[in-house]
């Protein structure tokens, strides 16, 4: 990753234009060509440095459900349960964390009603309770990684 790649990452975390030639617009700002910009985004997606390039949706305004969930899984069971949990398409990401509640994942469902169903299905499938902690109030969100 070179200075141009880093500039692209920093710039594109702030948004992407909605116009006829959005790549050209960004490329001009970064003083590179449109082809170079497209090629570099493609390469960084391929190298898995970027996970996604597109819209970030607001789950609740989409009419969907969104929650942060946690489970307490004994060491010997962790792999099996992680595999079972990740098989649900509604699970967006899943991290091990160092706490008695050691598995943390985000659930995104098409409807709020579906949230309750999926929580129940995960608990039944894995045999462990799921603690769901949906956002109640947002004080700040500014997730951006300077590189």
């Amino acid at each position: 990753m070179d200075a141009v790649d880093r500039a692209i990452i920093n710039r594109l975390q702030e948004g992407f234009p909605i116009c006829d030639r959005p790549y050209l617009t960004v490329a001009k700002q970064l003083e590179i060509t449109e082809d170079d910009l497209i090629g570099r985004i493609d390469a960084m997606l391929g190298a898995k440095q970027l996970s996604r390039f597109g819209p970030m949706y607001h789950a609740e305004r989409m009419g969907g459900g969104l929650s942060l969930c946690a489970m307490s899984i004994p060491d010997g069971e962790f792999e099996r349960v992680a595999e079972q949990v990740n098989r649900f398409p509604e699970v967006a990401h899943n991290y091990a964390r160092d706490h008695r509640l050691n598995m943390w994942f985000v659930l995104a469902t098409e409807t709020p009603k579906r949230m309750g169903e999926v929580l129940g299905e995960i608990a039944r499938t894995t045999g462990y309770p799921v603690y769901d902690m949906p956002k109640q109030e947002e004080f700040f969100v500014g997730l951006k990684f300077e590189v």
Binding site: R52, M56, H58, M62
Partner: peptide, 21 residues
Amino acid sequence: LQAGGVIKRMGIVVRHHELGY
């Protein structure tokens, strides 16, 4: 959709692990 907040923003999501975070 972006003005109405259904789309929060367009752009990239980084894999922060791969970027050293």
